[in-house]
Design a protein around this nucleic acid. Sequence first.
DNA 1: TATTAACACGAAAACGTTTGCGCAATATTT
DNA 2: AAATATTGCGCAAACGTTTTCGTGTTAATA
Lengths: 347, 347
Amino acid sequence: MKSKITLKKIAKEFDVSISTVSKALKGSHEISKEVREKIKAFAAYYHYKPNSLALNLRNQKTKTIGLIIPEIVHHFFTKVISGIEHVANERGYNVMICLSNESYEKEILNMDMLANGIVDGIIVSVAKETEEKGTHNHFKELINNGIPLVLFDRVIDDINCNKVITDDIGGGYLACNHLIKMGCKRIAILTTPDHISVGIKRKKGYLKALNDNNYPIDEDLILKIDEKNSIEDQINNLFELTNPPDGIFGVNEIYAATAIKIAHKKGLKIPDDIAIMGFTNGLISDFTTPPLTTVAQHGSTMGERALELLLDEIEYQDTDYKYKTEVIKTDLIMRNSTKKIPKNTFK
Amino acid sequence: MKSKITLKKIAKEFDVSISTVSKALKGSHEISKEVREKIKAFAAYYHYKPNSLALNLRNQKTKTIGLIIPEIVHHFFTKVISGIEHVANERGYNVMICLSNESYEKEILNMDMLANGIVDGIIVSVAKETEEKGTHNHFKELINNGIPLVLFDRVIDDINCNKVITDDIGGGYLACNHLIKMGCKRIAILTTPDHISVGIKRKKGYLKALNDNNYPIDEDLILKIDEKNSIEDQINNLFELTNPPDGIFGVNEIYAATAIKIAHKKGLKIPDDIAIMGFTNGLISDFTTPPLTTVAQHGSTMGERALELLLDEIEYQDTDYKYKTEVIKTDLIMRNSTKKIPKNTFK
DNA sequence: TATTAACACGAAAACGTTTGCGCAATATTT
DNA sequence: AAATATTGCGCAAACGTTTTCGTGTTAATA
């Protein structure tokens, strides 16, 4: 276990100064060819690599950016990470990923840790607990400290910074509108409690689609799922209604896939008896029976754009930088859980 | 955009030396109570936090560990990350996650980057390309540089370091044996090409189970899937055999779930006509129809153990450290894709 | 031969921290 | 009053790097 080779050790080896070694390794013509070559050879032999900490300290930048996400066992966030990694590679940056576990405390802890010189900028998707609490001082402080911040997916309106969001309203509209086109008459939505921003927006799109098509709004068909209790039990109640839905829109993959599961148990045929849609084209959607029609939200594009915005801000020279909010459009992925069955032509 | 507050700036503010400020903030009694208090108050007001880079450089350690995984859009690895994060939090470490994208080059790039003082140790799951290539010098160099290394899941036998592996052979045995118990007579395996270590091992377990039960080995039933071509097409061939299988063991979730998909298309009933098993209890398994019986490999436990081993090595004081290889047992998760149907009692 | 140019290298500061040691100035003891 | 103890603070080194400036030696020019 020999310790790392440094400029100092090389300098001692040849009885020259540290600066000579540094210059030699950089190929400076200040240093005679002879000395240059032998130092280079020696360094190569011992696999010399400049210590990053020292470099970062000197340069006052780390070429590393921090990413704080609520959860990692989640397909959407892994896609975002892929997108971020992709751009980071291209532009010579590293990524430090931290998990908030949806906790307000942990989010602050992570931010404090990253903010102490470790990273040049931070990308965050806000934890549920923070959204619920509505306390945003840690973000303001970060910005005050001059550390560039980009919020994505779950953002906070009154923080002034770059943002990348999914067109959740448009996606909700897309989903509900599709179910209407498929001939559904009573369309339910499986959504989140009211403090989750993306849930609210997707529901907004759903309501708009109903309105635009002159469908009545039935509160019985709006199910706000509380994840502290059994998701399956809560969705099951929907199927027990005296006047049950013939179309279901789940605002995420799990809700929709669980609905499929229950429909199977009830002996309902999908999509004939009931059509089911999801949101987020994740791992599950393609392997349910039938495969889930869903709204794709392009996680990796979001990641790419988030990092690009961050780096633009970091590398911006002038003083008149203007923050942007980018909206990433969603797309409908048609599969068989909502297939249109022409009336009276089947059997 | 005011820049970060430092000891130097505080020192200038009160016209004292940097060391006075440092000591005051640490509550040293060397400094008079009066001065101590006013410095503390000032620092608190400006949210002073010591610069991590400087600290790390001075202490010659970073309390950060590096993690290199081949892929992140993969449930198993996200579970491992969760486990690692969990232990890291408890023991005051940070985690830097890097993706090799299954590429040999990128793996080396990541290792080089991490090795330059940024981290105190590294955890790696080897990229497919590296396994295929069989070149392991970068690992040896790392160890030579005195940087602790832990390999997990996909490991290399002739690298001397701590390792955490799944009991892949045992898991393969568990799966195949279960299918035998369920009454299957012709059991196929969907596995990987021969250079992927975990695929080989799971197949080994499958072969052992066949042997132990005096089942013949039929090469037609051993399908090595080449992911460069359509997985679905390759599996489909299995169903077209003149003497097709009545049980299928996929060495991962995707292969098994794809088999289910094809069985549905062929109009086969699962598990009555054909039983199907997976490996890895991921997101998909619970949402297929019927839900997949599978072998759970406890990713988060693996992550936890990997980091614990790494930190033990990092924090070890004496010179007689001994490397360990930990084998994490697998468990059978019974679901309905392999349900035993008692003969002649159904319909 | 005296002046200047070119060459080859070293010293030192800077990034932000911590900490052992030294040294005044005061306070306490003989 | 003299010797000693205590208090309160600063200096400087160390971590590893880069880079500006200075300087001594040799070579080229006037």
